[in-house]
Simulated assay, not measured.
Amino acid sequence: MKRIVVAEDDPDLRDLLVFKLGQAGYEVTAVATGQEALDQAETAAAQLFLLDVTLPDMTGLQVCSALRAAEATRDTPVVLLTGRTQQSDIDAGRSSGASDYIFKPFSPRDLVGRIETLLAAAGESPGR
């Protein structure tokens, strides 16, 4: 089963993500801060990171940059979730090394589809 680390500080959205990704066949580890996401990256392999851009302790962009700097997670897909839709925000996300940038609100079905596409491109099979 493929493991996804979700870093989202909104408990309702975090629960929705865990539920929908679990339904899609993924093992999900959910955390509320960027540091917790980085800690998860060190403790067990994840096939994808799903990061809110506005976390309480650091931005999702900072977490993404740290993941890209680490040998173990350099090539792991990272998806940023955000309500920021300006081109400069998108460019900042891409500059941090994000694989994809998804705007809130989003369709859970679309999110799962985009995750499956990223995992397939990375050589990972779907969680099912």
Rank of each mutant, 00 (worst) to 15 (best):
A69M: 03
L50T: 11
L16H: 02
T73G: 08
G113F: 07
D12Q: 08
L21V: 02
D89F: 12
T29A: 11
I4S: 09
S125I: 02
Q47K: 06
L119Q: 09
A45S: 10
L61G: 01
I115D: 09
D52R: 08
S65M: 06
G127I: 04
D9R: 03
K104G: 01
I115T: 12
L81W: 14
L38G: 04
I4P: 08
K2A: 03
A46E: 03
A98E: 13
R128M: 01
A41Q: 04
T117M: 06
V6G: 05
Y26V: 03
A32T: 12
Y26K: 03
A37V: 06
Q86M: 14
L50F: 08
Q62A: 13
G22F: 08
S99N: 12
K104V: 04
T82P: 13
T73C: 09
D39Q: 14
G60K: 05
A72R: 14
V63E: 07
E42D: 10
E42F: 00
V79W: 05
T73Q: 11
S95T: 13
F49R: 11
T117H: 05
L111Y: 10
F106L: 13
K20E: 12
R109T: 15
A69K: 12
R114W: 09
R84M: 13
A44D: 04
E116M: 01
A66P: 05
K104Q: 11
K2H: 01
G83Q: 14
A7W: 00
Q23I: 03
L81I: 15
P126V: 11
G25R: 02
G34E: 09
Y101R: 02
A7T: 02
T85E: 15
D52V: 09
I90R: 15
D75L: 15
Y101V: 02
K104P: 00
R109H: 13
E71I: 01
P77W: 09
A120G: 02
L17K: 00
C64Y: 04
G113D: 10
A122D: 07
S125M: 05
T54W: 07
D15C: 02
D110F: 11
L17N: 00
D57N: 07
R109G: 10
D52K: 06
T76Q: 14
A46M: 03
P105D: 02
A122I: 07
L48F: 07
D57T: 08
I4E: 07
F103M: 09
P105I: 03
D91V: 15
D110E: 15
